[in-house]
Design a protein around this nucleic acid. Sequence first.
DNA 1: CTGAAAGCGCTTACAG
DNA 2: CTGAAAGCGCTTACAG
Lengths: 347, 347
Amino acid sequence: MATIGDVAKLAGVSRSTASYALSGKRAISDEVRDRVYAAVRQLGYTPNAGARALATSQTMVIGLLAQFLPDEFAPAMLQYILGVSDSARELGYDILLVTEEDGTRALKRITDSRAVDGVVLLNVAEDDERLPILREAAQPGALVGLPADCAGVDVFDLDFEEAGRMMVEHLVRLGHRELVLVSQPEHVVQRGGAYVWRLQNAALEAAALRGVVLHTYFGASRQPEIGRQLTQLLDAHPTATGLLLNNEAAAAALPSVLSGRGLRAPEDLSVVGRYSDEFARTFSLPYSSIESAPDRLGRMAVRTLVDRIERRAGGPHVVRFISPDFAERHSTAPPRAAGSPAPRRDH
Amino acid sequence: MATIGDVAKLAGVSRSTASYALSGKRAISDEVRDRVYAAVRQLGYTPNAGARALATSQTMVIGLLAQFLPDEFAPAMLQYILGVSDSARELGYDILLVTEEDGTRALKRITDSRAVDGVVLLNVAEDDERLPILREAAQPGALVGLPADCAGVDVFDLDFEEAGRMMVEHLVRLGHRELVLVSQPEHVVQRGGAYVWRLQNAALEAAALRGVVLHTYFGASRQPEIGRQLTQLLDAHPTATGLLLNNEAAAAALPSVLSGRGLRAPEDLSVVGRYSDEFARTFSLPYSSIESAPDRLGRMAVRTLVDRIERRAGGPHVVRFISPDFAERHSTAPPRAAGSPAPRRDH
DNA sequence: CTGAAAGCGCTTACAG
DNA sequence: CTGAAAGCGCTTACAG
């Protein structure tokens, strides 16, 4: 493989001149520049990434820490990954994908070894073990997900409180008086998925304010458990007319649960989920939803991270919540007949 | 950040001795080694990845090229990625994830710049444009998917011919005489998804051999098109008693299509898919399937690639097909009544 | 068993 | 506008 020395020799200039001609970091005569470019083309020269990283202390690589926990719904994560990967590339960065179980060790490894210029953490927990490591690291970090302590990092998350309020208010406005909310599994919360609480508490508050009943549950994140649970919930609350889902697995399972009971949305039951549009398409979900916008969050995290890497922004750290959009898929309507039981399967 | 020079100084040895103590590449007295280790611990020393890559020409990074084509089903790809990522890590390698649209350019970039020691290509097409680039590259490559020309690369794929035969024979043994096969979209084939042909042709051959009718179709890879198409196919072939799916989107859509028609598998229709067990769980699919084993394929590709990188295997390139396993989920049974039409929705 | 030195392929002050 | 030199942080022949 050709080195910059080969390019310089062929162009008849010094290595520094060749380097400057390529970087444009100092004025070069047109004639010399042309000769250098010609040599580059002729030799098929590409700078050696390791050598450049060593010389500049810039790898042009961003670390992406994505944990695929057994109790989370993997396809939901994919969208964040693609959002991060695509926007990193647009900004000239490659992605070092780390899916190791032991996220702390992985983070320490890639930051200590200077393999990356910065890091994006997905799936951030309330009291995330990776954060102390990140704060000690020389590289900046951006999180998707809100931890208890945001010091020293840039944080991006959906406004789950607003999402909870929106879900409830939307159905209240249509005339619903009794709702059921199915959240993520309880161990997600225990592990530190504070967003589950944020949405649920805001939903409860909104319900109390409007004087409607809201039953809240934690649902499994796996089939077939979640399907059975949904069935039980519908049995347990025959007078509820609205179903709110903050649980991707539940959303994915709902169509067959409903059709198994002979129910349709919104005729028999109004349904609002919280997931991305892409997720809805993939799983063919016909329910209106609070758009969780993983791609937007991923993009924002990367942009801010790159700004920080490139010292354009050395300023204070940000904590940004994006306002949820409501994706209308016509799965909500006024309740069939206030107070009367929802239709049941006819056997 | 501490360098090996700092370690050497603190341990009171030369840099080379410190380096050898850490690599174990030459004999070191116990006493010196202990001093070096102590210094490493005290300083929290981690070797600089770029410097090491420059000195050794080894990055300990594997490039993973995953294209997320709009007409393919993204969640199916995730499993390959995780298989590759996890097994690479076990072998000491990190993953540079490249999801760029322009796979050729990306591949050229990461190989020419020596950012990776080797490359895994996912989603390989019959006449894949990335292959000429890969053959010119200095690094070895492993493919998941079978191209027309396997020269210079290691290739791993499911034995789709065997898969096609298995699907047909399984249903024939149960007494079915008329089957429908839904494959991936036609443009996947046109782009070079030869595996679609391989499965379909083998299925047709097996059907001819057994004297049973096999209707073959290309299905969409998106909702809601694929759902509509499945409905049309079932309408068009009322006497068919078995449905074969070589199309993940079709498999994901089938449960609601069937329940919409009041049909159940295997009572009313026998169904066999071709997808991974993980996929079946995620989508809660109750159909027996030919296991596509993405994790196994990813692992095999990585192991072979790493062997080649580390010169343990400089030998001839391999083309390996893995035999499909049949994952029994009890969605097949003898046809209800040979020759009589399948039950239809009662309205 | 250990050390001094060269070299990997870049970039970037320093000089002119 | 250009060149010679130092340096980034490692590893590894070469010497002893």
